[in-house]
Write a protein that binds this DNA or RNA. Sequence first.
DNA 1: TTATAATTCAGAATAAAATTCTATTTTAAT
DNA 2: ATTAAAATAGAATTTTATTCTGAATTATAA
Lengths: 153, 153
Amino acid sequence: MIKLDTIDRQLLTYLQKDAKKTTKELALVLDLSNTAVYERIKKLERQKIITNYVALIDKEKVEKSFMVLCQVKLSQHVKNNIVQFEREVLKLEEVLECYHISGDYDYILKILIKNMDAYRKFLIEKLTVISGIGSTQSMFVIKEVKNTTLIVS
Amino acid sequence: MIKLDTIDRQLLTYLQKDAKKTTKELALVLDLSNTAVYERIKKLERQKIITNYVALIDKEKVEKSFMVLCQVKLSQHVKNNIVQFEREVLKLEEVLECYHISGDYDYILKILIKNMDAYRKFLIEKLTVISGIGSTQSMFVIKEVKNTTLIVS
DNA sequence: TTATAATTCAGAATAAAATTCTATTTTAAT
DNA sequence: ATTAAAATAGAATTTTATTCTGAATTATAA
């Protein structure tokens, strides 16, 4: 197990909030030298604790205002259905997240799409055409109350 | 409505995958000058299409291997309960996402935590102490099949 | 505890990237 | 077709990232 000290955790918190912070700025708030901060970040990257850096974009501004959480039940829990479903879901760009879960349904999918019409089309033409799907249930997002990528370590 | 051309979309795709790509690299693949790429990115930032840049970290490596999707039903749908619940949820660092949804339950929460014991503790001591909560139902994530922040525009 | 090795850190030097500037070209509207 | 606005290219400048060397700190073993 990798052990992180307080400074590492602070660094991770800052970088998860704003990856554009310069080593200089971080060095200032952490009361360290430029190099110390730089080396720590590089180590976190080498250890794959920081996996990557990404730009986040505004869903509303790119015609993806409609979010649906769709639960999926497979017709039968045979290996082939599972493998096939998971493989196909990976290909669907509308599906941002997919989890195999406990409970009444097998999977839950987070889907981002333009609107209800587009969702209906997606459901009929892209999702339910995957073989092995038994049933689906859609939960429509009325309001995004919270959505962060910040994991407090 | 802001209109994006093909180059803007390509830029967004690249930056959503790797925010550390330099303008030089992007200029090369997009067959544009350094300045052109730079100005386009700055414009996307000004327009708040790009909202921010973040570091993503490996959940497993920071003791957050356990993911739960928890559905919450309020006891009564009065304004005060709604406001209060949403305000409290924002404060909980274990809750990465919270959506007000249609269906049997009012909210669904994505929770990241160390393990089942920690989740039980969280449920008892942090979540269900919020006033106005009627019932909860937890769906445990068996396997993360897909999880991306990439929105294809 | 002390000696030793391995990390971590600081400060300076260098390399690379971001940012600015000016002039030119392209695009869009009249 | 004419004009204004926006987008682009290339060079110059500023800032940041990266490397390097040596010192300080920490961890480990005798």
